[in-house]
Design a protein around this nucleic acid. Structure first.
Lengths: 344, 344
DNA sequence: GTTTATAATGATAGCGCAAACATTGGGCCC
DNA sequence: GGGCCCAATGTTTGCGCTATCATTATAAAC
């Protein structure tokens, strides 16, 4: 690359280059960018011209360093491929973007150790706030977050002792409610199939168990779980092996999420098992497909987009010192009973 | 908050705090972090102890400013909620993470103007490289990217004149191939339903049209498009209104993606139209559900994860000055014919 | 035993920007 | 017309870090 003059593409233009070209001081250029109302129309115009001419783009590192404000919100989620988090993310991005914040996003792969390392990376960017998933942080990770001295929101599930703020819903209650509805629909022998088995899935199982135990219908032999990641394919496999090992004793299956449930549904169709008459089926998370598949799939809906919006809004308001609400927000859920559990 | 001493949680520890505690110079601490092999075991141990004791986390802004290396790769995608991009993102994150790069991700909402603004935001973070989607950038955006003087990868589709590097596949050829197969399967009057209608969808339509025209089977009245975002619900609606307006004249539908196709499939089931005998159906992108739904859905698969991996790998290698391959990489696609288009 | 190479550490300066404080030049008051 | 205020602009300084160049200690070379 040839050597070029300032402001040409060889070397990136700086505030000083703009200032020289506009014949003002550097700080005036800074003001035009950050506090345009504090500069006269005339100078503002001249500076803007110079900015455009040079294609000047501010150096955010320098700005962060000088002002101790990075404009970054750090976000850690366990998986990029799980649709559940996309909805939440959309909410976060929408609010953050509208308020002038950037989002630095990391994927922890459902591992607290990886989360710790990722949180360290995020903190090195001097974020003004953090949004993380759930409550299974390592001790070191918790310490870092406290030390960082920025607002932290833990989202997705309700926690006993959040680090700071918390938005989510009770997966245990939701699991309980759904299981309750299944029993109410008249199913007698309800199995559970679950994958990944992270904290939230375990809570759903706990709720399921509680509901069944209340009617003395819980049977540990009907709980089928695996640490493998969820997928439609896996749902089909688990359903098939469940059927093989239970020998017709099961008349409904509570799937820990809609991936598994859809897989089970498609597999039951191929096995010529009628849903819902021979086999009730429900999922969790209420994917769009669940409402449209035939038979439509019962599931638990939670306002995920709103949860992201709420998390980001709390943060933005706390940063402006304007937040009035509670530190722990229950965003709620809704059991949506559809054809797949309609026994009679 | 009370005032506290250095290294306590009141004020974040800096390199100098660590240096004082370890009784070394600041630069030695910097070396322990960035070039540990250049420091003796003894000092490295002492410094590491001080780092741990103070919970020191480097300030990346200061580091970026001093070293002119941010460790950031900027990524712009048109939508956070489209699964298609998640797969690609996973590939990018996996490679970037393994190579020590952070990803700054923005959502352009399919708007070139928003993309321009987001790219400006990304560039202000001094990214070392950029990955963007497609080739519909505004002039100003293209200029910024060229001026930034960093490697740029445009991904998802193959471009005539990429700004720099390019990884993708030809959506037109893919559309052509799929349409060709549909005709080959024996379907006579093939409709097209499309949503969003971004560049890539338009290319799929162009390929579809080309294939049909070659057999004089193209009929513009059988093309149904809308700028609305795709969804399963929309697929059902479009299918229903298509059926209403064409009056039984259509025997197959090419859907621009699997969302629409699944929606059309579920709707056809509710309308008691047999797929594939009365109606052929195909989609695009090959979602996981497409292989498992009944009847299974024909679609076009592209190695999206690999595409993300490739894009990030190219960048990482270019940054190390080690990249040997072509600037334009065709990642290919695969037409997967399944039950939904099995006429005979 | 002097020179030369090498490894380990340190001192200094500066990256680009904005906070804090300083200066200037009206307009306005009585 | 002196004093005061405020808006508009400028000067200085330092954020936390690393590149660069220096310095010292140590080993190797002859």
């Amino acid at each position: 690359m040839e050597a070029r003059k300032r402001g040409q593409s060889g070397r990136k233009a700086t505030l000083v280059d703009v200032a020289e070209r506009a014949k003002v001081s550097a700080i005036t250029v800074s003001r035009v960018i950050n506090h345009p109302d504090k500069v006269s129309d005339e100078l503002r115009r001249r500076v803007q011209e110079a900015i455009d001419a040079l294609g000047y783009i501010p150096n955010q590192s320098a700005s962060s360093l000088a002002s101790a404000r990075s404009g970054v919100i750090g976000v850690a989620i366990p998986s990029l491929s799980n649709i559940v988090f996309n909805d939440v993310l959309r909410g976060i991005y929408d609010v953050a973007g509208a308020s002038g914040y950037k989002v630095l996003l990391v994927d922890t792969h459902y591992s607290p150790l990886e989360e710790e390392s990722m949180v360290r990376t995020l903190l090195s960017q001097s974020p003004e706030a953090m949004i993380i998933t759930g409550g299974e942080q390592t001790g070191a990770c918790q310490r870092m977050l406290k030390n960082a001295n920025v607002p932290v929101v833990q989202m997705m599930e309700l926690l006993e002792n959040p680090l700071d703020m918390n938005v989510g819903f009770s997966h245990q209650k939701a699991g309980y409610s759904m299981a309750e509805q299944i029993l109410k629909a008249g199913y007698q022998r309800v199995a559970f199939i679950g994958a990944r088995m992270d904290q939230r899935v375990q809570q759903r199982l706990a709720g399921f168990r509680e509901a069944l135990e209340q009617q003395s219908r819980f049977d540990n032999k009907l709980v089928f779980t695996t640490p493998q990641p969820s997928s439609i394919a896996l749902g089909g496999e688990l359903f098939r092996s469940m059927m093989a090992s239970t020998n017709g004793a099961v008349d409904a299956v509570f799937c820990c999420n809609d991936d598994l449930a859809l897989g089970a549904l498609f597999e039951s169709q191929r096995m010529n098992i009628n849903v819902p008459t021979e086999m009730g089926l429900c999922g969790f998370n209420d994917f769009e497909a669940s409402a449209f598949v035939n038979p439509s799939l019962s599931s638990v809906y939670a306002p995920r987009y709103d949860m992201g919006v709420k998390a980001a809004t709390m943060i933005v308001e706390v940063l402006k010192d304007e937040y009035q609400g509670e530190k722990i927000v229950d965003i709620g859920y809704e059991v949506r009973m559809r054809q797949s559990t309609h026994l009679k």
